[in-house]
Design a protein around this nucleic acid. Structure first.
Length: 183
DNA sequence: CCAACGATGGTCT
DNA sequence: GACCATCGTTGGC
């Protein structure tokens, strides 16, 4: 099983978002297969529409873990993309639990495997990801592996939970997969 | 069934 | 002081 290196993230954000589908994320002893992602660059719905204290990581790095608090109670997991100076990040929206499910169930307070990582907030809760992981290099606490899984058809649509730039179809998911955020 | 809403706190103006 | 890249619950059908 090959480990995905930080250099993978230098390329175009939309390309990274698609290619991350089917990859395996490892953190806190748990693994899950990524089923749904979203691309964010410098578009009007992105944190990087303006460079701020929070969003500067999207401008200055690639292959870094970007975690932020949303709605005061949930976290969202992203990986920064593109070379220094060009902002980008891919939001991990959903995954299929592969190992460590008992721990995930306990952290989520839920039994159904489809309700453990089926949304960005849920996924962080299940995997124990919070702001301590922000700005860590990929490969330290958080790792990504490629086991050769064939994704097949990739579905796409507007990104979820935003009001701007709805014309951009930058939400990607494994078509037909039941472990996504929306059935 | 599903639309509406409240929880809750960091970030930005 | 307003705004969220969310989620679980509530309440009306």
């Amino acid at each position: 099983m090959k480990q995905v290196l930080r250099s993978f993230f230098v390329q175009d954000t939309v390309t990274v978002a698609k290619k991350l589908l089917g990859k395996i994320i490892y953190v806190n002893g748990c693994t899950a297969r990524i089923t749904e992602t979203e691309a964010y660059t410098d578009d009007s719905a992105s944190h990087a529409f303006k460079k701020t204290e929070r969003s500067k990581i999207m401008f200055d790095t690639y292959g870094q873990v970007y975690v932020y608090l949303i709605y005061g109670m949930y976290h969202c997991l992203n990986f920064t993309t593109e070379k220094k100076g060009k902002p980008g990040a891919v939001l991990i929206r959903a995954a299929e639990p592969l190992s460590g499910m008992e721990l995930m169930k306990r952290k989520r307070g839920a039994e159904d495997l489809h309700n453990l990582c089926s949304g960005p907030g849920k996924l962080c809760q299940a995997l124990g990801i919070d702001k301590r992981h922000n700005n860590l290099a990929l490969g330290k606490d958080v790792k990504i592996f490629d086991d050769g899984f064939l994704v097949g058809k990739i579905g796409k649509g507007s990104r979820i939970g935003i009001k701007d730039a709805l014309h951009l179809q930058w939400r990607f998911f494994i078509d037909g997969n039941r472990f996504v955020s929306k059935v």
